[in-house]
């Protein structure tokens, strides 16, 4: 049963990942990304990370991909990019070599070091013990005792990101906002 779940999730992940880099349309790439993210969430559940699986679905598939889709549709860049033309002649063969080489090296390192993984912690709590939210409890205990400072700094990071994005995406007031408006309108009408 675990093997079946693993194989199904792995197929989802790999099909989605290949779809992201193969589909020429950005919207299709974003939808393939959702497939990959759901597959990763399934594997999180299989590895007793229930809270992270929920966060994966909510934050990644729910927020980040929707943000991607918003940007794609907002900017009107949702036209298929021609994948036939190769801007730099040797780019794709070199990229394939780099990818295969990287995968081979990582696989060799993983297979070589698979016996060095020794259990050293106290274990991941599962829901088998009768406490249904044991994973959340354990994660929260670790987060708010050992990593509480990093957690606080994270809030600063999020505030900085929001303020910076508002500043970046704001239309410049002095350099003719009407000019930009007109440009956007003509583009929309052409479409």
């Amino acid at each position: 049963m675990q093997l079946f779940v693993f194989i199904c999730a792995a197929v989802m992940i790999l099909i989605g990942a290949v779809g992201v880099i193969v589909r020429s349309h950005p919207v299709h790439a974003a939808l393939s990304l959702i497939l990959t993210l759901f597959g990763v969430a399934v594997l999180f559940v299989a590895q007793d990370a229930h809270f992270l699986a929920a966060v994966q679905v909510i934050v990644y598939a729910g927020a980040i991909v929707v943000l991607f889709l918003f940007v794609i549709m907002l900017l009107g860049v949702d036209k298929a990019e021609s994948l036939r033309i190769d801007p730099v002649k040797v780019q794709r063969p070199l990229a394939a070599i780099v990818g295969i080489g990287l995968a081979g090296l990582l696989a060799a390192a993983i297979v070589q070091g698979r016996d060095t993984l020794a259990r050293r912690g106290t274990g991941i709590d599962t829901a088998d013990g009768g406490v249904h939210d044991s994973n959340i409890r354990q994660l929260a205990n670790d987060l708010f005792s050992n990593h509480v400072f990093a957690f606080e700094i994270t809030s600063v990071l999020l505030v900085i990101a929001v303020v910076g994005t508002v500043l970046l995406a704001r239309r410049p007031r002095h350099s003719g906002a009407s000019h930009t408006e007109a440009g956007t309108d003509t583009k929309a009408s052409v479409k």
Binding site: F51, V55, I64, A118, G121, H147
Partner: peptide, 19 residues
Amino acid sequence: LGDIGGQTTVFFVMVVAAA
């Protein structure tokens, strides 16, 4: 490894990825 620290790290990676 039986260490919850890995899951805590993933939590932070998700927050930083969102930002």
